[in-house]
Design a protein around this nucleic acid. Sequence first.
RNA 1: GGACCGUUAGCUCAGUUGGCUAGAGCGCUCGCCUCACACGCGAGAGGUCACUGGUUCAAGUCCAGUACGGUCCA
Length: 865
Amino acid sequence: MASQGSGAPKKASLEGLEAKWDTAWAEQDVYRFDRTAKRPEVFSIDTPPPTVSGSLHVGHVFSYTHTDTIARYQRMTGKNVFYPMGWDDNGLPTERRVQNYYGVRCDPSLPYEAGFTPPGKEGLGADGKKLKQQVPLSRPNFIELCSELVAEDEKAFEGLFRRLGLSVDWSLLYETISDSSRRTSQLAFLRNLAGGHAYQQEAPSLWDVTFQTAVAQAELQDRDQPSAYHTLKFTRPDGSDLMIDTTRPELLPACVAVVAHPEDERFNQLEGQTITTPMGVEVPLRLHELAQPDKGTGVAMICTFGDTTDVTWWRELNLPSRAVINRMGRFTDEIPEVLTGEGRALYEQMVGKTVFSGREILVNTLTEAGSIVGEPRKITHPVKFFEKGDKPLEIVSSRQWYIRNGGREDALKAALVERGEQINFHPSYMRARYRNWVENLNGDWLVSRQRFFGVPFPVWYALDDAGEPIYDTPLVPDEDQLPIDPSVDVPAGFTEDQRGEAGGFAADPDVMDTWATSSLTPHIAAGWADADGGLFDQVYPFDVRPQAHDIIRTWLFSTVVRSHFENDVAPWRNAALSGWILDPDRKKMSKSVGNVVVPTDLLEQYGSDAVRYWAASARPGTDTAFDEGQMKVGRRLAIKMLNASRFALGMGVSVDSLQSPVTEAVDRSLMARLATLVDDCTAAFDDYDYARALERAESQFWIFTDDYIELIKDRAYGEGSSTSADGTESAHAALAQTLDTLLRLFAPFLPFATEEVWSWWRSGSVHTSGWPSASALRDIAGDTADPAIMALAGAALTELRRPKTEAKRSLKTRITSATITVPASERSRLEAAMADLVDSGNVDAYEITEGDELGVVAVLEPEPA
RNA sequence: GGACCGUUAGCUCAGUUGGCUAGAGCGCUCGCCUCACACGCGAGAGGUCACUGGUUCAAGUCCAGUACGGUCCA
């Protein structure tokens, strides 16, 4: 047996515990994952990799604490916990931060420049003034700067998480932009391609003109925008007017048809007839059930493309394409051939203009010509935006990569819904979010992005004799070559000088959507692509994916898709959803609102255990108000833990006391309650309900300190009026058992305070000491232990204190005589506790009578003169 | 418009198969330096369980509906 601890100190404090124990845990490898453990002995966590380019946020502290309590619980039950950390340093947020931080802009056409010095740092130039212009630089240079900056950000995150006491195994750290992650992304993509699950297509897709990239359905956001209806005068075959309302008159040159509802008797007899637009173009009138008879005049114009309904009409009605908006969000100089005469002259004025200016030109011209009638009528309506963008999305036709997700195939959709059924959601109602999302998908997952800092598609195209890419048969590398950058590496059978030449080859220019990498976090963390000595089989499918509920449709779903294709299994058995932090006014905390609280200050002020207590008090999945009051409560709890332990250990309780018998009725009652508590906490943790476990443990803890310790104090000191040596030994044994049990139960929540106390009298770490056993406590309590004795004794103690408080006397005031009334059914319990009550209540003499309610009538000793 | 969550003390929240007088913390009031803790301790006040109807011997809890708040998605 290892030597026991150094004993309780004279004064205890929380200050400095974080640094002390973080260092000790690291030195002792307390959280190290055991690579020899078999899968059934493992508990694996698919940790969310935080976006390191964002600022530190109290939300990080919140949700990561939830996961850590689960990890610590599982570790104590004997599981080998696979708890990695990852940094999400891939994607748009990093790109944007690098641009602003260094004052640079990526221009992929430029060559690499060795030893490049950026114009500034932290958004400031060498002269200390704010950077205004962005210097263009090559993609490799840009990526170098990205890596440089994220390295700094990652240090700050690791510092925060260590101080918070996350029990991650830091040797398992991964980064989403590392070679290994890029290899994983590319390998999974090539497998998807080979399996027919990935494909590319030239199709209309939502396009962000600011970021110059296509965006996926999952990244869309509807925002209410001011707009206006204009009434345009089209012409029927008989020369009469056909009025059409539109909020996007500037798309008139892209009009390919007009549409009405099949059952709208005002228009359905016009089906197939030719209508002339105000720009003199002849288009057919078609019928489709998505046309809304009650909207505008009941007839709409179909343009390629104003919104996603246009795309549906275009596809289902087999209409021609007449694109006028280019990728810059401006009117193209490729003038549609159908435009002639005045219509063509009007469009020529719009060429190169933005949507907004083009609209002004068209509206003015047509109003003057009498083709727009009446005043524009202002409305507010929802418009699609990229969630990170601030300009409305346009729809442009482009060649993009897709991964199938059931949006176009019912069988796949059903299979993915079924995968969701195989995952236990915590709380369970979160499953509905998953199911709703999957069932309502209407397109495949667009995974290509026209960006720079990301994982490139590992694909080239052979060029035909005219220098045009042959898209149908992409050239791919061997799997063991990965990762590759097709803009640098050369496909087999070609040489670098054939790049871009007719008969040569060209690289796919795009990078993958950030979710295309994030959807592989289980594979990345477990080294799937690295053939890493069986680690993958040791941990996959994972036990749990912890994450926030707002990214069920993105991160959670896309991970299910990848695992479905690659492994034919759900990626985890459980999904634990955490809520959001709200500020005290119930608004979601976000940087733009300016209500973000910096977590490092909180950890400093209240201590990590206190902040963890606040986080762990929040029910799984519920949005929670930021509440410093709860942190004060947590701090009080942690301090109390130190002091109560100091009391017990200070009177001779030691590790040996754990071997002594618990004989007194009051003590046995407490043991019985502890056994129930262990059962409750175990059940709660098994259901991922850390908050319930904490609440139960806390409530028993305060009964222990406020009632039990007060009751048995004199007996424990060996000073009670009728105390025997056995009674004292029993109190010591009960104190030791309680301390032992409570330290273990609180270890997932207050890892620092519990470890500190553990070190005073035990060897090793409380975090690897094992979860307490309810049956062992029941054995100690004995069959006849009565948990109600403690409850009654506590209530009786309150009754004995009340007369003193009401008389405004000190609690040490002696009661010269007391009459205690007790219900007959409780009498034996009271008598069992009476010896301790006499001592703790300073009662000189008493008698017991039976009555309806527990109560005390007391005569106090006279006040000293 | 659809789905989901919520509404219990001034505030933040518990209340698990329906079952004693609905609980906790904070805040508030009044006290107490009691040999673990004044970063503490004790006692107390404070609730029409959103509303309406139903099931039941019994409803904060189950059912139906309404209102309000919130989240996700259209």
